Simulated assay, not measured.
Amino acid sequence: MAKFNVSLKARLILEDRGRILLLKQTKPNGGNYSLVGGTIERKEYAVESLIRESFEEAGIELTPADLTLVHVLHKRYKKAHRIVLYFRAHHYEGEPESRERKKFENVEWHPYGDLPPNLTSTVRHVLKAYSRGRLYSEMEK
């Protein structure tokens, strides 16, 4: 059987009054809008990884009780697979701000009905599946 790489990531769908929090990437990093989150490190579980990433990237403080798993994306590349766990939260502490200025120039709230055109294709795919109540989706890259 052929071996392949698998990476695990966790992302945050932070909602507030019909809006979602998005990170605006710097131009060298694509210049698109994405979600808070990142790679689950070897000694972490998904929830603790997302809590760490949320604080590191956006200054948001979350607890495990704030997070609910709402979607799983299986993304397949030519030589690798990526599993991304999407957690929703409505409650958080702190004022969202970009804390990794080399990667993200801004943190912005956007209404679901008026998402930016340069939202990453992956986030657009996931939000569409999530809005339809689908817990799982697949995507080829």
Rank of each mutant, 00 (worst) to 15 (best):
A10F: 05
R76V: 14
E41T: 08
L85M: 12
S98T: 04
A2T: 14
Y136A: 04
L135G: 03
E95Y: 03
V72S: 10
G37P: 11
H110P: 01
E100K: 14
G59P: 02
K9G: 05
V6S: 08
Y92D: 00
E56Y: 11
E57K: 13
K102T: 09
V70N: 08
N32K: 15
T63C: 06
F104W: 13
F87R: 09
I20S: 02
L22N: 04
R52D: 02
H90N: 14
E93R: 15
L50W: 03
H71N: 13
Q25H: 10
G38A: 04
E15C: 10
E61Q: 12
L115W: 07
R124E: 04
E97G: 08
E48C: 08
S137F: 11
N5Y: 10
E56P: 03
G38M: 09
H74L: 13
K75C: 02
G30R: 15
E15Q: 13
K78Y: 11
G30E: 09
I60K: 06
A80P: 00
V70M: 03
R124Q: 05
K103E: 03
Y92R: 02
V126E: 14
R101E: 14
I13H: 13
K27P: 07
E100I: 09
L69Y: 07
L69Q: 12
G94N: 07
P28L: 05
E61D: 12
G30F: 13
A65K: 15
T26Y: 04
E41N: 14
T120V: 02
F4I: 11
H74T: 12
G37W: 13
N32I: 00
N29G: 00
L22V: 07
Y92E: 01
R42V: 08
V123Y: 03
V70G: 04
Y86K: 08
E105L: 01
S98I: 05
E41S: 11
I13C: 14
Y86P: 00
R101V: 10
P96I: 04
L73D: 10
T26S: 07
Y136P: 01
H110L: 07
I83S: 13
G31Q: 04
S34K: 09
L73A: 11
M139V: 06
K9M: 01
I60W: 09
K24F: 00
H125W: 00
L115D: 03
T68I: 01
L12C: 05
L85G: 01
V6R: 12
K78D: 01
E53Y: 10
K103L: 12
L119K: 05
T39Y: 11
L50R: 07
D66A: 06
S54R: 06
R99G: 02
R19D: 05
H90R: 15
L127P: 02
S98E: 00
G113S: 10
G38D: 11
T39M: 08
